[in-house]
C-alpha cells in the first residue's frame, strides 16, 4: 500500500462507548474487519508498508476512539490508579497523580519515543498492538495492572498475567474495547526501575527494557513486580526472578541464582535489532542492577 491508499478507508467517530461496542459486535459477528484508532503511531505506519488489500471492499472500517471521554482521563482513587486507554503518554507524564505515585510510568513515557510520539501514543494502542517489545506494556506488567475491557456483554477485567497468550495474541475478545488500565499502586516512595537498552534513549525499539517496582520491609521484598521487553514472544513477567527475590532475605541473594532465574525466564532471539546473546547479557545485568539497588549483594 502507499499513503495515497489511506484515502480509501472509511472512518467513523462513534458517539460514545456503547456505540463503539455495538458497531464492533455487529461487524465481528459478520467477520468484517474493524480497526479502533487512537494515536495511530503504529497503525498508520503499518498501512504504508503492508501489501495492498485485494479489493476495496476488504478494507477495514476505522473507528476513531481517540477522543471518547470514556477512554480518556487519569484518576487516583486511594491506591488505585486508573489510566484511560486513549490517554496519551504526554498526558500521563504530566499527570500529578502519576508523578507522585507512579514515577516509573512517567520515566517510561519519556523513553517511549520523542515528544511527537508521546503526544499521540496511548497505553491502549500499545496493548492492542501487543508487541512483546512494547515499552508501555512492559511497565504495566511490572505493576501487575488489570485491563478493563467493554463489549455489548458488559465490562470485564483481565489481570495482566492472563492477558498475553502468544506473540501478538491475547485473551481479549475481538469485540472487546480496551477502556482503561488499573494499577494497585505500591506505597508512595517505593523503589522502582525503568531501564531501556536501545540504539537511542527514545525513538528506538528496545533491545531489552526492564520495568520494576518493589516494596521492601527491612531485608525482605514483600512485593516485586517485573516486566521485560524484547526477550520472549510475550512481555516477560520474570516469574522465577520474582519468586526467588521474595523468598529469602536480600542479603542471601547471589548473582548466580539471579542469573539462573533470568535465564530460565527469558528466551531471546537474534533479529535485526540485536542478538540473543547480547539480550541475555543485558537481561541479567539490568535485573542484577535493580536487585543490587534494593540491597542484594550482587
Amino acid at each position: 500500500m502507499s499513503v495515497s491508499d489511506l484515502r480509501l478507508f472509511e472512518m467513523r467517530r462513534p458517539a460514545d462507548l456503547p456505540d463503539v461496542c455495538a458497531v464492533l459486535a455487529e461487524r465481528v459477528s459478520r467477520s468484517e474487519p474493524t480497526v479502533l484508532l487512537a494515536g495511530g503511531t503504529d497503525w498508520l505506519v503499518e498501512q504504508e508498508t503492508r501489501p495492498a488489500f485485494a479489493k476495496e471492499a476488504a478494507l477495514p472500517l476505522v473507528l476513531d476512539v481517540s477522543r471518547l471521554p470514556a477512554l480518556r482521563g487519569i484518576t487516583l482513587d486511594g491506591d488505585r490508579l486508573r489510566i484511560g486507554a486513549a490517554a496519551t503518554y504526554l498526558d500521563m507524564r504530566r499527570d500529578p497523580a502519576v508523578l507522585a505515585r507512579a514515577p516509573m510510568l512517567e520515566r517510561m513515557g519519556r523513553d517511549i519515543g520523542a515528544i511527537q510520539i508521546q503526544a499521540r501514543g496511548t497505553l491502549g494502542g500499545n496493548l492492542a498492538t501487543a508487541s512483546p517489545a512494547a515499552d508501555g506494556v512492559t511497565a504495566l506488567a511490572a505493576y501487575d495492572a488489570t485491563l478493563v475491557v467493554h463489549s455489548v456483554r458488559g465490562e470485564r477485567r483481565i489481570p495482566f498475567a492472563s492477558l498475553q497468550t502468544a506473540y501478538k495474541r491475547s485473551t481479549r475478545a475481538a469485540d472487546e474495547v480496551i477502556v482503561a488500565v488499573e494499577i494497585d499502586l505500591p506505597p508512595a516512595g517505593s523503589p522502582w526501575i525503568w531501564r531501556k537498552v536501545g540504539t537511542r534513549r527514545a525513538q528506538s525499539i528496545s533491545k531489552v527494557a526492564l520495568a520494576g517496582v518493589a516494596v521492601r520491609e527491612g531485608d525482605r521484598l514483600t512485593r516485586l513486580g517485573l516486566g521485560m521487553a524484547s526477550v520472549a514472544p510475550v512481555t516477560a513477567l520474570l516469574s522465577r526472578v520474582r519468586t526467588l527475590a521474595t523468598s529469602r532475605p536480600l542479603r542471601d541473594l547471589t548473582a548466580a541464582d539471579i542469573d539462573a532465574a533470568v535465564d530460565a525466564d527469558v528466551s531471546p532471539i537474534d533479529d535485526i535489532r540485536s542478538t540473543r546473546d547480547y539480550r541475555a547479557h543485558c537481561a541479567r545485568s539490568v535485573v542484577r542492577a535493580f536487585l543490587r539497588d534494593l540491597g542484594a549483594p550482587v
Binding site: 498508520l44 505506519v45 515528544i115 511527537q116 525513538q203
Partner: peptide
C-alpha cells in the same frame, strides 16, 4: 513519512505531533 524524522512536526492543540501520522479526520 513514518514518524521518525520530525520534519512534518506541527502543533495540534498546542502539542507537537508528526503530521504524517495524524489522519485529518481526527482534527475536527
Amino acid at each position: 513519512a513514518e514518524g521518525e524524522c520530525g520534519a512534518c512536526t506541527v502543533l495540534l492543540d498546542g502539542e507537537p505531533v508528526n503530521a504524517c501520522l495524524v489522519p485529518v479526520g481526527q482534527c475536527q
